[in-house]
């Protein structure tokens, strides 16, 4: 059963939120959806790039009140 998880990287600077996402991905199952919260704009640009590079599924990025929400699905 696929889960949806929040990875709270708010307050941390690049590459902190990316590293937190990777730790969370390792502890997740294929199909799980992870939503990274980041206040660092660099991470909002960099995380989708990383996801495409390593071959997970990038779903979306939205910004709300200075917080970026980057959603990713684990595919392998």
């Amino acid at each position: 059963m696929a889960e949806k998880k929040i990875v709270d990287g708010r307050g941390s600077f690049c590459p902190g939120p990316l590293m937190e996402l990777i730790v969370a991905l390792k502890a997740s199952q294929i199909g799980d959806e992870l939503e990274v919260l980041s206040t660092d704009k660099g991470s909002a640009n960099d995380i989708p790039e990383w996801v495409r590079k390593v071959g997970h599924e990038y779903i979306s990025t939205t910004e709300e009140a200075g917080v970026w929400h980057i959603t990713v699905r684990k595919t392998k």
Binding site: G11, S12, F13, P15, G16, M19, I22, V23, K26
Partner: peptide, 17 residues
């Protein structure tokens, strides 16, 4: 003065992850 990941933690993550 900011929450920048510590360089030693990053170096360890390079190895661990």
């Amino acid at each position: 003065g900011k929450k920048v990941p510590d360089f030693k933690t990053l170096m360890e993550q390079a190895v661990e992850l």
